[in-house]
Write a protein that binds this DNA or RNA. Sequence first.
DNA 1: GGAACAGTCAAGTGGTGACTTAAGTTTTTT
DNA 2: AAAAAACTTAAGTCACCACTTGACTGTTCC
Lengths: 134, 134
Amino acid sequence: MLNRFDIDDTLRALAEPTRRAIVDRLARGPASVSDLAAPFDMSLAAVVQHLQVLEECGIVASEKVGRVRTCRLEPGGLKRLGDWVAERRLLAERRLDRLGELLAGALPEEQRRPAAKDARPKRKKTSTQSKKEK
Amino acid sequence: MLNRFDIDDTLRALAEPTRRAIVDRLARGPASVSDLAAPFDMSLAAVVQHLQVLEECGIVASEKVGRVRTCRLEPGGLKRLGDWVAERRLLAERRLDRLGELLAGALPEEQRRPAAKDARPKRKKTSTQSKKEK
DNA sequence: GGAACAGTCAAGTGGTGACTTAAGTTTTTT
DNA sequence: AAAAAACTTAAGTCACCACTTGACTGTTCC
């Protein structure tokens, strides 16, 4: 229920320099829409649109009082992204750890193939292996 | 150095479901281009293009041996994003802490950070340009 | 040698999203 | 009451980007 925000929206929101600059500004404290718009060389309407995007994915919250809308960072927004990143890093790192143990453990110095699913006959062709990347 | 990658590319790369799915797959271990492409209902060329994007921002690395290109996660890629997020979260949270202390009135003034500068201008007397010069 | 495999390259297309301007609303100031 | 401030909404434009197709290169298998 509380997770009506998904990571896709979050990442798309932050994949934009202007919106990231807004986040940077808001990390230092709340601000009005006009304050947020001031540094940018674009229309106020454009900044409002950016704010809508940030709000729809839960990174920013705002509240209107009188004619002024005050925006602030919503802590949960960045947390969700941080968690997403941490998850993947952990997964990949643990995999590497296991691989390391495997390598340290029981391997002769024989040339090792990357965890082949099926054993393929190593027809070693000693000739030039052109590794042109790119 | 190794920091020719910037956060903009990283975030734009991950702001795309297919590329995130590729990252998820690679978090479980290396895979060939065809392996990566298999789950998707799109051309191989499209997947290759996604991989190029992921590689250009340092999230994925790959190496070609024979006719097979094997891709893997580059740990630094996700780390940089994690750091970026953590920075902002920390900034925002510390601000909230200071605010909380301030409200509680529990601090002798000499221990306080000069937070006054941080207080937002309630009113900008110089209501200069509501319209930009452009 | 030739077929199948694994990927690469280039050009083209459609949709999305970041802007614009222009007109409207609500609140505050004078 | 009128004007100004601070947004808000809508409609339109344009560039970019995800994806396609098709032709091509290099490698492995029979």
